[in-house]
Amino acid sequence: MRDATLVEAINAALARAMQEDERVLVLGEDVGKDGGVFRATDGLLARFGPARVFDTPVAEAAIAGMSVGLAAQGFCPVAEIQFMGFAYAAIDQLLNHAARLRTRTRGRLSCPMVLRTPCGAGVHAPEHHSESGEACFTNIPGLRVVVPSSPRRGYGLLLAAIRDSDPVVFLEPTRLYRAVREPVADDGTSLPLDRCITLREGGDVTLVGWGGVVPEMLAAAERLAAEGTQADVIDVATLVPLDAETILASVAGTGRCVICHEAPLTGGFGAEIAARLAGPGLFSLLAPVERVTGWDTIVPLSRLERHYLPGVERILAAARRSLRHG
């Protein structure tokens, strides 16, 4: 047990997975000697050697596409795309090939690969480095989409993603990489890939979200508690497959739900959760579903960044609006 940041926990999970299974490979831009631009792969080349860790040329489609070939041959490639803005070049490979290889060969070939990429704003990064594009992946059948929001969950979810038999897109919130330290037991224990994670139980209002906004939801819950309102806080963690039951069960108790994510509102994955609430969850609702998200704008450059990110105040305002009903 040691205190670790999210990026250190990611690194520990990668090392653990490589140690326990020699089929696990790491490839991507600058993942070798440089250890990745965020240092997520730091030390892996030295420890596991150049037959397990590959510095690729700058070629995102090939990084994803070669992972498909490696996976079909029985390896478990973990590909790193340097920033989310560059991951879109790999979507063709994920959508047309990785996600459907098992289906189109009726299981003769499969694709146990992980594509990791940092996501989200909040670190004053250059243009194209701050996107939250999870909804581009959540509408791709055959793909799992996972977003950790703490060091422990980063460790357990990444291990599960690497051990999974099918392709997983693993989105790591950049602003959480070094935001906090917490004790992480590097004991190889994974977390389930089909469960939301309830971080706080309150019973008055449900706050549900993923990634960079999760600490904001927890801070909002603290503030609400000071006002005498107890919130359920749910980290969705695995967007696909979605554990709607946990969310619906929470809202069955609270009757109120605030959905939070950093990605833009329209067509964001929060809309899927809202739709579930409007369907099987409708008669639980005491108030309109609230969504607190990034604006439907291009993520601004750093000077306006904090005005884009949904934060505690907006979450609180939404929760209070919700509480005024019924």
């Binding site: 090939a62 596409g65 070669m66 992972s67 070939g69 041959q73 029985g74 047309n96």
Partner: peptide
Amino acid sequence: ASHVPHAAGVALAL
């Protein structure tokens, strides 16, 4: 052409 990277990946595996 999107299968050429697969072929390179298989070749790397071999």
